[in-house]
């Protein structure tokens, strides 16, 4: 019961932070709200018993990616965004039915999913040897190929980001001109 209360706490925190992400005008505040949201979600993961995912959420998301955003924000003049209107109101109103439609669909999918939910097979193993070990062993055995592919995607993404973000040389600009 306490666990559920903690879950509710983290959930409320995450939702409030997400609302902050969507509503605040200043990008600095938005980043802070995002950070808060990610930490809250990591809390939800811990409550759900997924320690490994929660830890990685904290390490990768809440630290690495958020810092990345901060870095980028220093590279572009975020002051401009503060001065201008930061939201599209028409689109926001128009998108509400779309979001509601998605909600509806998710509910239906969820209901269908409950009907078809398979029986758990790792419950006992998790109780015995802990969640992180089970996840790790499955990840590095059954999903090893996928794991390697993801690492490759990360490498490609890194190279791409460097290529896109680097400063163009002078000769290159002459060519385009």
């Amino acid at each position: 019961m306490v666990r559920f209360l903690i879950f509710l706490l983290f959930s409320a925190w995450a939702i409030v932070s997400a609302v902050g992400v969507v509503t605040f005008a200043n990008p600095i505040y938005v980043i802070l709200w995002l950070l808060s949201c990610l930490i809250a979600i990591a809390g939800i993961f811990f409550v759900a018993g997924a320690e490994l995912v929660g830890a990685l959420q904290l390490l990768i998301y809440a630290v690495a990616i958020a810092v990345f955003y901060v870095f980028v924000l220093t590279a572009v003049p975020w002051e401009k965004a503060v001065k201008k209107d930061s939201h599209y109101r028409t689109e926001g109103i128009l998108s509400l039915p779309v979001v509601l439609l998605l909600y509806l669909e998710m509910i239906i999918v969820f209901l269908l999913g409950v009907v078809a939910s398979p029986e758990g097979k790792f419950r006992e193993a998790m109780a015995k040897i802990g969640n992180a070990e089970v996840v790790g062993s499955v990840l590095f055995t059954k999903y090893f190929f996928a794991f390697e592919v993801v690492s490759l995607v990360l490498l490609i993404g890194m190279i791409g980001a460097v290529l896109i973000g680097r400063k163009e040389s002078q000769t290159y600009e002459d060519d385009t001109g």
Binding site: A18, V21, P27, A81, H87, E91, V99, L102, Y103, M106
Partner: peptide, 20 residues
Amino acid sequence: SMILFGLGILGLVVRRNLIT
């Protein structure tokens, strides 16, 4: 999950700044 996802989509649509 649904509430967060909806808020994310909403933010995707309404935000003017690319980073946000």
